[in-house]
Design a protein around this nucleic acid. Structure first.
Lengths: 339, 339
DNA sequence: CTGAAAGCGCTAACAA
DNA sequence: TTGTTAGCGCTTTCAG
């Protein structure tokens, strides 16, 4: 154990103690195969006696294998991003990687250099959780600078690009929204309205496609911000309209905003109005009434993003996706229209 | 702009281009005062022409000023920790620091070495968001190893220690819970029950103190986990008891669980039962009915934690706290008992 | 299987 | 005000 304030134990201290060269110590801590078992044991003993811990900066600088990822995101508190981040952390921890986090302010404009200088060094690997315009832009900048070391998650316009399969890990947001919309249609609703989050695209596509399928012209989607309050405000006119019987929301938080607005407008749920969310956030099942929504495995997506990055770094094949497929959870905010 | 794959631009490349020594470049990027304006301009021009960006590992290794913090936490998705993290990020970004994040699994037991090896190097600065037993333990380990470079937030038994003022940044959780309990008492409730989160202490102290103040013996606190589901389950017996008219909850999520359980038990809110949360999470104001709670500025606390760490690192005085003081927000889940 | 040498990109200390 | 030198702790060569 090194005393506080003293010079930390280095690879040379260990080498001296074990009676080997520092290089042999390096081999041991990197699990190199060509080390005699006896030597390995001696070194390991010295390591634990001295309380040696490798210095990550030195390892990185000396050009060893990369052992950290920088995650770019815009809000660590939103359910989707928080869960994705947890998934990345799970994967990173299992692989011995350090996670750095770089939060981008949606209201700020970043130059290419602002983004790139957030990496620990040129070409450091990164994962972008792209859920808004700023992170989508960051994704583009990072990918242009280091195509091999950047993967992304998210649902935005870039995910329509042809080479997306190489670097994108994402649920099929289109199918998810389509499914929820079809469900509402199947309950007998004439049409389904859509409350949209900022900067996302594919969920809205799915909703529109499901309507087109049955020959219904899609009503104008209503635009909301990310907060529950903004959703309540954005949906105020919608919920006041007695012709509106079904609303599909970009995510659960938005759905809670709609429920709040509907309550204030005196409309009963699900008699007057069906509301469907998306995410299955922790509160959905416990809301009063419990929210009909689609279970999305963001954590699995995060883990998948890390694994794709890891595979690319080591020149391996793209691993198979590992997340649960989305599931529609019909609870108590949806049903057939009253007539 | 360095081409992908090429060797990154170093301080020597910049020096050559600007016709100065690499040390002068170092001075410019570190804002050292003793550089002639003309020289500085030349160097800056070379930097931007070449797209030079400093390598953080090299800077750290060479023993420059520290520019990163590792944050230890146990769940980045919970409202309190997520907001604290955001506050730390805000402060770190303003000071040009990188934030590393180290998530500790509550179900795992870590050795001292497990914890210490998560730092980028021996003695790297850290902030611990201590909200459970595992993180509280990490706090102790880190503080013992590097007392000067570790600060913490949170509400646990350690915060009762005498030297806490040196390294702890925290709201007055005791006062917060006391205030909420007094409010319920003032509405005419005979007693107030407490639904507790794991591993926290001071909120419970405040609740007990407020009851003691008016000579009421505190009922046995009910223990919940961190999830809404566990709260609903833990509170099932409590809400079924018609003698229970007021429940104060460790945080908002727990309160939502209680509301859910109360609804299932057929008790009306707030007629039969008053429920008070703690946090003012984003959903509180928009729940149906809106939740009475206490607004806690976790983001401010996070910023304060970073600023305390930063001040310690630079040998400055402890900065003044910068967060909003807690405020009781009486909404629609609380009121006088029915008789 | 092990060791010696060179250098990653940067900063601190010293010299001019 | 600027330049030179000597590392930081480690990994990658390359030699035995």
């Amino acid at each position: 154990m090194s005393a506080a304030g003293a010079r930390p134990v280095s690879i040379f201290d260990v080498a001296k103690r074990a009676g080997v060269s520092h290089q042999t110590v390096s081999r041991v801590i990197n699990d190199a195969p060509q080390v005699a078992d006896a030597t390995r044991a001696k070194v390991k003993a010295a390591i634990s006696e001295l309380g040696y811990r490798p210095n990550r900066s030195a390892r990185t600088l000396a050009g060893g294998a990369v052992r950290s990822v920088t995650v770019f995101t815009f809000d660590t508190a939103l359910y989707g991003t928080a869960e994705t981040l947890r998934g990345i952390e799970d994967g990173a921890a299992a692989a011995g990687f350090t996670v750095l986090i770089s939060v981008l302010d949606p209201d700020q404009t970043y130059t290419d250099d602002d983004i790139l200088s957030r990496l620990s060094h040129d070409g450091a690997p990164a994962i972008v959780i792209a859920h808004d315009d700023t992170t989508t832009r960051a994704r583009r900048i990072l990918r242009e600078a280091r195509p091999g070391a950047v993967v992304a998650t998210g649902d935005d316009k870039l995910s329509r690009e042809p080479d997306a399969a190489d670097w994108l890990v994402s649920l099929d947001d289109r199918a998810v929204a389509e499914r929820a919309t079809r469900y509402l249609l199947s309950m007998g609703h004439r049409t389904v309205h859509y409350l949209a989050m900022p900067g996302r695209a594919r969920r809205q596509d799915g909703w529109a496609d499901a309507l087109a399928e049955v020959g219904v012209e899609a009503p104008e989607p209503v635009q909301s911000g990310w907060t529950i309050g903004s959703a309540a405000e954005a949906a105020a006119a919608l919920v006041a309209d007695p012709d509106v019987t079904a609303i599909m929301c970009g995510n659960d938080d938005l759905a809670f905003g709609v429920l709040h607005a509907a309550h204030r407008a005196g409309r009963s749920i699900p008699g007057d109005l069906s509301v469907v969310g998306c995410d299955d956030s922790p509160l959905a099942a416990f809301n009063v009434p419990p929210l009909t929504t689609i279970d999305l495995d963001f954590r699995g997506v995060g883990r998948g993003a890390f694994e794709l990055l890891h595979a690319k770094l080591e020149g391996r094949e793209r691993p198979r996706p590992v997340w649960r497929s989305p599931e529609l959870l019909v609870r108590e905010t949806s049903g057939p229209p009253r007539h």
